[in-house]
C-alpha cells in the first residue's frame, strides 16, 4: 500500500513545486514591470504639446484592447475548467479562442503604434514616449510569447491528452495569462486613463 501510493504522491509534489517555481518567476517579472512603471511615472511629464497622452491616445482603441484581454483571461480560465473535467476538446477549443483574442489584442496594439509613429510620435521623440513604448511593448512581447507557448501546449495536448504533466503546463500557462491581464489593467489605468485625464 505504502509503496503504491508514494511514487504517485511524490510526482504530484514535484508538479506542485514546478507551479511554485513559476510563481517565483512571475514575481521576478513583476520586478521588471515595476522598474518600467517607475520609469514611466517619473518621465510621463517630459513631453511637449502635440505629443501628450491626451493628444495621442484614442479611447475606443485602448478600451477595445482592454476588453479583449479581459475576455481572453476569462476564456483561459474556462480552458482550465474544461481540463479539470477531463474534456480535451473543449480545453483545446477554449485555448484556441484565447490565442485568437491574444492575436487580436496584438494586432490592435501594432495598429495603435503605427498610427502614433505616422503622426511623428516615435520612441526617440521624447522621454515620455521612450518610456511609453518600452513599457507597453514589453507587455505586448509577453503576450506574443504567451500566444506561441499556448499553441505549443495545444499541440502537446493533442498528442498526449490530459495527464499530470500537460495538466501542470496548462495550469502554469493560465497563471501567466492572468498575470499579463493584471499587468495590462495597471497599464490601462496608469498609462492610458491617467494619460487622457
Amino acid at each position: 500500500m505504502q509503496q503504491s501510493i508514494t511514487p504517485q504522491h511524490e510526482h504530484e509534489h514535484h508538479e506542485s513545486m514546478k507551479v511554485f517555481g513559476f510563481w517565483i518567476f512571475l514575481m521576478t517579472d513583476c520586478i521588471l514591470f515595476a522598474c518600467l512603471f517607475a520609469t514611466f511615472a517619473v518621465l510621463r511629464t517630459h513631453t511637449d504639446s502635440p505629443f501628450t497622452g491626451n493628444e495621442l491616445f484614442e479611447i475606443p482603441g485602448f478600451t477595445a484592447e482592454t476588453f479583449i484581454l479581459l475576455t481572453s483571461s476569462f476564456t483561459s480560465g474556462l480552458a482550465t475548467l474544461a481540463m479539470n473535467k477531463g474534456k480535451v476538446k473543449p480545453l483545446i477549443g477554449w485555448l484556441a479562442v484565447t490565442v485568437l483574442l491574444g492575436a487580436a489584442f496584438i494586432g490592435l496594439e501594432i495598429n495603435e503604434f503605427m498610427k502614433m509613429v505616422s503622426e511623428g510620435a516615435t520612441i526617440s521623440t521624447n522621454a515620455f514616449l521612450s518610456s511609453f513604448y518600452t513599457l507597453v511593448s514589453t507587455h505586448g512581447l509577453h503576450v506574443s510569447v504567451g500566444i506561441v507557448w499556448m499553441i505549443a501546449i495545444m499541440i502537446q495536448l493533442k498528442k498526449h491528452g490530459i495527464q499530470s504533466v500537460t495538466k501542470r503546463k496548462v495550469q502554469v500557462m493560465s497563471l501567466y495569462w492572468h498575470f499579463l491581464d493584471v499587468v495590462w489593467i495597471f497599464l490601462f489605468t496608469v498609462v492610458y486613463l491617467m494619460g487622457v485625464m
Partner: peptide, 15 residues
C-alpha cells in the same frame, strides 16, 4: 512569494 513581490513592486515604484 506574492507578498514579497508586492513589497518589491511597491518599493521600486513608490521609492
Amino acid at each position: 512569494a506574492l507578498v514579497l513581490g508586492i513589497i518589491f513592486v511597491f518599493t521600486i515604484v513608490a521609492g
